[in-house]
Structures are given as C-alpha cells and as structure tokens.
Design a protein around this nucleic acid. Sequence first.
DNA 1: TTGATGATTGAATGATTGCTCAAATGAAGA
DNA 2: TCTTCATTTGAGCAATCATTCAATCATCAA
Lengths: 120, 120
Amino acid sequence: MTEICREHEEHRGRIENGRKHVPNRETILEISDFFAALGNPTRLGILYALSGGELCTCDLSVVSELSVSAVSHQLRILRDRKLISFRKEGKNVFYRLRDSHIVDVLSVALEHMEEGLNHG
Amino acid sequence: MTEICREHEEHRGRIENGRKHVPNRETILEISDFFAALGNPTRLGILYALSGGELCTCDLSVVSELSVSAVSHQLRILRDRKLISFRKEGKNVFYRLRDSHIVDVLSVALEHMEEGLNHG
DNA sequence: TTGATGATTGAATGATTGCTCAAATGAAGA
DNA sequence: TCTTCATTTGAGCAATCATTCAATCATCAA
C-alpha cells in the first residue's frame, strides 16, 4: 500500500496540497458519521417527516411504514449522532430535528441532485 | 408493523403533515445514496483532498494511506454516484470534484458539528 | 396492584460494506 | 512485439448494518 508513483517530483507537490485539505482523522470520522446517519432511506425519511414538526415514535412508524421497533432503533442512532432531540409526554415520546443545519444539508443535497439531472 | 396509536384522531393530523414532507421513495433513495457516499471516512478524505485540486489514483492512495486498489474501489463508488469526474492523461487518471455542491455540503456539515460542540 | 399501551432494548439473522489479494486492462516506451 | 507501470476489476472474507422478534421498561388508569 501507499507505493508512490515513479515520477516522485511531479506528484509530491500535488500530494502535499491534497493533504493540506484533508481535516484530521477525528474530524473526518465525526463528519462521516454525520453523513452516514443521513445515508439510509429509513432515517432520511424520518428526518424529512420531522421537518414538518414533531412526531412520536408511533407516528413515525406509520409514516415510514416500518415496525415501531425498527423505527425506534433508527431513532436511537439519530439521537446518538445528535440529529434529533425529544421530549416525553405521558406515554409518548415526541421527536424533533435538533438544529436548522439538517434542513440546510438536505436542501443542498437536493440541489446537487437536480444539477446532476440537468447536465450529467 | 404500522399499527396506529389508539387516539387515532390526535395522531392522524400529525401523520398526514409528516407524510407531506417526505419525498417519494425514488428521491429518498437517490438522496440517501448521495449521503451514504459521503458517509465513509475513506471517501470523505478523498473528496477533501480533491477539494484542493485534481489528483490521480496513485496520489490519492498516498494521501489516504490505503492501497491503490482500495482507493480505486472507492473512486468507482464516487464516480457512479456522480460526486467526481475524471480525465485520462497517459497512464494516469486524474479525478476532480464534479460540482460545487459537494463543497457546500461539506461546509454545512462542519457548521453542524461546531454547533453541536457549543451547546450539545 | 393489575392491565393496557407506547417505547426501548438485546439477540439473532440475512444483507451490505470495505478491504485485500490476485488477475486483467490499457497506455507508453524499448 | 514485449515490458513496465498506473489503474481497474472480481472473488473472498470479516465487520458492520437494518430489520425482526421477544422481552422489558415506563406511564397511566382502573
């Protein structure tokens, strides 16, 4: 692994420049965890549903057409990664998006998708 | 699955509203694929490196400290999902970010991460 | 306390993922 | 042509993931 191309000199400059733009390992892991949380249809659907306002676990089960258990497992992941927060009211637990950046990210992704359709 | 809570009436309004905000299945799959591509440390590192300018497969192998083969496999995924494009020059293949939205998404993610540190 | 209901959890399991290794492809030069 | 080197590809495998199922927890009411 990491064998370097033969014309060292030409490559070395590019490699150094590339390296400069890569955040440290810890940051990379944090950010990729964030995206991985968004990178699943069930969780993404949950987040979109919550963009319309808070919903309880049961509601989300109906909207996503999955078992309450499956939804709860995914909610835990979204909670752990700080994408959603919740409040308890009686027997129900209501979830909501944790901050506005999630919506921002979703809309930029949509732009990218439309861009791809137009010329790609 | 999808058993509805007992107080139908209270829930039905919320459920309908939530549903309205969820894109159709196909769109959800496209977008979650997009995020899944970003949701891996190796691929994310590659994208950051490319944000500094084009690099060949070999360069990316050095920067990411992985085998050329491993990098090539990941590059294929990024290509298929239209996050990068490439040009061939002699024996080398140079990759670059495909459009500006990728950088946009990365910066919003960083914001979210910093927000989380402040009051999370 | 008992029973009902919403939610969470843990084990189990099939599917997917990311890597390695070996082989194949493609381009340039001898 | 044959060789070399950058890259790609496919098989194989361990690790991770998403879901189901059963059990448990938590809240409320009778």
